[in-house]
Amino acid sequence: MGRLRPLLPLIMFGALAGLPFAFAEETTRFWQGVLIQIYILAVYALSYDLLMGYTGIISFGHALFLGGGAFTTAILLRQDNPPSVGVVVLAVLAVGLLLGAAVGALSLRLSGVYFSMITLALAEIAFILFRADDPTLKPITGGELGIQGVHVPPAIDPTTFRLRFYFLTLLFMAALYLVARRIVDSPTGRVFVAIRENEGRALALGYNTFVYKLVATMLSATLAALAGMMLVLYEKSATYELLSVGFTIQALLMTIIGGIGTLVGPMLGAATIRLLEHWLDSSAVRAVLPLWLRTDLLFGLIYVGLVLFFPAGIVGGINKLRGRRSRRTIDLLRQSVVPNGIDAQNNVK
């Protein structure tokens, strides 16, 4: 087993690539859809882990980045003569970087709960603006109905070429996982971890921590925006719900279920959540649960329970089972939120 370990990602990739052929003919299309959603959500969870797990920044406005990428794609592809996929990808990358830079530049001046608070406020503003049924805004944002009828390039249309789109999202997830892994293992990524563990010390070593945190936010925002783009390509629509706190909670839920600061963990978390959702919505379970217990309420309660009793997540639990000392990430994260909030840089008298 030990010698196989380096091959594990390859084996996983191969298994996932073979998965659509493992189902019966009539259900395979449905399961491909579920897996596509899982891969997209996994990238979203990955982007969140980069920020929360590795840099120790808790953003409560992550849905803003996802929604930013989604609405950029939807607005570009809604036109009658939609631009090519390359242009869309470039636009989404630009929007992701810009949103990350703008949100980061504004809110990273503060740390801890202040940062979380400001990011939540910024995302809520976007939510309000995109939901508003206003004659001037509605043509752009779609208002309450959102943007429907996005023209996906025929070659990758998920309705006609479901299997092709499946492999596209699988490759998309694998590529972005490698990118994230590369970022985390790079010297810059090491500085991110240093900031998480002790920002003051990183500062004392001569690193401009503000710039590094800004870079982390921008990278994370870009990954989330790309996930938003894929989501629109799959769903062929974008609604204001993408910007809601619910989606930020979902990122948190996936990250915490999977294990903070592990990259693989949040991706597993994404799979867990989507499959759990499917299972909870199945008629057999619905018949047992009381009618008022909605799925989202159940998820909220699961989330609260996890935070209270099971903060290390799946990967943390596996590490514990294997007798390893569980990662100290959690303890370190704890320190990164300074109670009185004001950034070390700004707090000098």
Partner: peptide, 20 residues
């Protein structure tokens, strides 16, 4: 003892109350 989890928890409560 785990202030960061307090923040994560209260955000979760927003979601719970909303669904409730």
């Amino acid at each position: 003892k785990r202030p960061i989890y307090q923040v994560l928890l209260t955000l979760g409560l927003v979601f719970v109350f909303d669904a409730l």
